[in-house]
Design a protein around this nucleic acid. Structure first.
Lengths: 123, 123
DNA sequence: CTGCATCCGCATGGATACTG
DNA sequence: CAGTATCCATGCGGATGCAG
């Protein structure tokens, strides 16, 4: 399982991965679905204040197409559609946790140069 | 170092982290800087075909402001400016690797339902 | 209830030309 | 060499209205 990537393919790989997560609301949706939660369209709508239906369905559809989210249609009136994560979608957890860890490291390391944005090499 | 996040703060944290990585060229630049490489403006320009000066300087400036990239100015004629990663920027490596790992898992798990995008719960 | 269509404003990104 | 300034195209996201 050793990763042997060239600088370019690695950049492409991460860019592709990031592209799947891009979108104003995908992360929020994802976190509402983590842990095996199964939510209806209206549940998500209510759980995410400020999101429009268009955005909600758009982001859900994209993630469904990308294999991150599973869509379950119950043919009944009134309609009922539920959303949950695929196995692959659940597998995102560790990666996002790593990102979280990195973000948390901001205060702590970085060489103590938060207030020295530009170094000046003038002699 | 246990992460104890609520659903909301975690989403915010990751979103903030992702926001720092957003931008058409940031990842590409990052990967060219990983490994302690110190590159001049023109080096990056040459190394990344298709990028415009505007985009290059814009993305670099944002990452500098965010503490990911360090900018070193040599006051001389002709001008010479070098860019490298901060310690925190270098620390991004594991997180991006996790993302890479996740992306690689696409083929392999996900319950074998790549061809069944929408499940149908009709009785 | 769930989801699609349309229109609109704004931010992002790209091309080009110019400056210290 | 290392930017800055300007103009322009595109796309994203928001609001509203309609349909199955």
């Amino acid at each position: 399982m050793s990763h042997q990537y060239t600088r370019e393919t690695a950049a492409e790989g991460v860019e592709n991965a990031l592209k799947l997560l891009e979108g104003r609301w995908k992360l929020v949706i994802l976190f509402h679905l983590f842990g095996g939660h199964v939510l209806r369209f209206s549940d998500l709508e209510r759980a995410i204040p400020g999101i429009s239906q268009k955005m909600l369905i758009q982001q859900l559809r994209q993630m469904e197409k990308d294999g991150i989210v599973r869509r379950i249609v119950h043919h009944q009136v009134p309609p009922k559609v539920e959303y949950c994560l695929t196995d692959w979608g659940q597998a995102l957890c560790p990666a996002l946790d790593a990102l979280l860890t990195w973000a948390a490291q901001r205060e702590g390391l970085d060489g103590g140069n938060q207030n020295v944005p530009s170094q000046d090499a003038t002699i």
